[in-house]
Amino acid sequence: MAASIQIMHNLIDESGARTWADRVHQGELWEMARARSSNSFNGANPLGWAKVLNEAGMGPYAVVSVADYGEALRTAASAIADTGRPVGLVMWRGRHVWVMSGFKSLGDPGQFPEFSVTGIRVQDPLYPYGDDKWGPSPAPNTLLTPKQLATQFVVREPRRWSSNLPTGYMLVLPRAKA
């Protein structure tokens, strides 16, 4: 999660003057996210992730759960189109996180509410390692099809951590600034 926070910062920071890549800083971000998470396993969860993004000046971000896969992709793509900021994807039923940095679609999200997402640009902080169960990590900035993404972006298991969010595809979603 901390590496994903660093990736998101580096995508959002337009000046390019403050690249976040330091391992010590990554550990600090992990501790920040963990301290802001309510997790019976003493780890960090998406609520802590969003809180760190907000406190670090990258927000506002909110955690949402979307029941339908296609709607989750449209929600994420619309948020990127509206804000210009990346979306956090909660992967592997809540065990890992990626960053969605862009998309391709049939139709403009701002003009056509039922547009189709045809490609999802992702950043996986585990690259090149991946996972024995879930498969290989895509290379940075890979454009996946919805079918390819669906092998690892699956419904979050409710038992992974307590929240009042319904079961669904979990996103750490940028919101328009007030």
Results as ranks from 00 to 15, higher is better:
G27Q: 08
K133S: 10
G135C: 05
P136F: 10
A21D: 14
W20A: 02
A77I: 03
V117Y: 04
R23M: 12
P60H: 13
E28T: 06
N45R: 02
F41D: 13
G119H: 09
D131V: 01
L47T: 11
S101L: 13
F115Y: 07
T19L: 15
V90H: 01
V24S: 13
H25E: 13
K133W: 14
D68R: 07
D108I: 07
G88H: 04
A50Y: 00
G88P: 04
G59E: 04
K133C: 07
P86L: 08
D124R: 03
G88E: 05
R74E: 02
L29Q: 03
R34D: 01
S78Q: 12
D22C: 06
L126H: 12
S40Q: 07
S65M: 08
S15Q: 11
S37A: 09
D13T: 09
L144M: 15
R95H: 12
W20P: 00
N141I: 10
A33R: 00
D68H: 10
D108C: 06
S105R: 09
P109A: 13
V24A: 13
S37C: 08
F115P: 00
V64C: 04
S116E: 15
S38F: 14
G135I: 02
T19D: 14
P146Q: 11
T142R: 15
D108S: 12
G88Q: 05
R74Y: 05
V66L: 08
R18T: 11
H96N: 10
I80H: 09
I120L: 10
R23W: 11
R23I: 06
G88A: 14
L73S: 02
S38P: 01
R34M: 04
S116Q: 14
R121V: 14
A62C: 10
A35G: 10
A79R: 00
L29V: 08
P109F: 10
G88K: 07
R36P: 00
W92S: 12
S78L: 12
D82P: 00
N45Q: 05
S38R: 15
R95C: 08
V99K: 00
N45L: 03
A76V: 08
G57W: 07
H25W: 02
K133D: 10
D22G: 00
G135N: 07
G70W: 09
A35E: 13
K147Y: 14
G119E: 07
M91Q: 09
Q111S: 14
T75K: 10
Y61G: 03
V66C: 06
A62P: 06
M100D: 06
R34W: 01
S38T: 14
G110F: 04
V64K: 03
R85I: 03
A72I: 07
V122Q: 03
A62M: 12
V52S: 00
L73T: 03
R93A: 08
R95Y: 14
K104V: 11
S37D: 03
S116V: 15
N39E: 08
W98C: 12
A79K: 03
P86S: 11
A33V: 03
R74N: 05
H25P: 00
G48A: 02
R95W: 12
S40A: 12
A76D: 06
N45E: 09
N42C: 04
T142I: 13
R23S: 11
N141W: 15
P125Q: 06
T83H: 10
A81H: 11
A76E: 10
V99D: 01
S137T: 08
A67S: 14
G57L: 09
L53S: 05
I120A: 06
A17I: 03
P46F: 00
